[in-house]
Amino acid sequence: MGEVIIDFIQTMGIVNITWQQVVMIIIACVLLYLAIAKGFEPLLLVPIAFGMLLSNLPLSGVMNEAISKIQFINPVGVEAFKEGVNAHVSTQTPGGLLHYLFQGDELGIFPPLIFLGVGAMTDFGPLIANPKSILLGAAAQFGIFTTFLGALVLGFGAQAASSIGIIGGADGPTAIYLATKLAPELLAPIAVAAYSYMALVPIIQPPIMRALTTKEERCIVMTQSKPVSKKAKIIFPIVVTIVVSLLLPAAATLIGMLMFGNLLKESGATDRLSDTASNAMMNIVTIFLGISVGASAEAQIFLSAQTLMIFALGILAFAVGTAAGVIFAKIMNLICKEKINPLIGSAGVSAVPMAARVSQKVAQAESPGNFLLMHAMGPNVAGVIGSAVAAGILLSLFG
Rank of each mutant, 00 (worst) to 15 (best):
T213P: 02
A305D: 01
V326Y: 06
V46R: 11
T122I: 12
P237K: 01
P202C: 12
G119P: 00
I17E: 04
G61C: 05
I238N: 14
L200D: 06
A188Q: 07
I344Q: 01
I331F: 01
T122W: 06
T174K: 00
E106V: 11
P207L: 05
V30H: 02
I14E: 00
I255N: 06
E106S: 08
R272I: 05
V23C: 09
A179R: 06
R218K: 11
L97I: 15
N130C: 07
A355E: 09
A252I: 13
F398M: 03
A365G: 03
I287Y: 10
S274H: 09
K337V: 14
N74T: 00
A351C: 15
I255D: 09
Q92R: 06
Q159W: 04
A183G: 06
L373G: 04
Q364E: 12
L186W: 05
S68T: 01
K361A: 08
Y177W: 14
A66C: 03
A252V: 12
A170I: 05
T18D: 04
L116E: 07
P42K: 13
A280Q: 13
I73K: 01
M374I: 15
A269G: 11
A365M: 04
G157N: 09
A295M: 04
P112Q: 00
G345F: 02
P42I: 10
P206T: 02
I73N: 02
L45I: 08
G61Y: 01
L187R: 02
C29P: 02
G96F: 02
S55N: 09
I14V: 06
I238A: 14
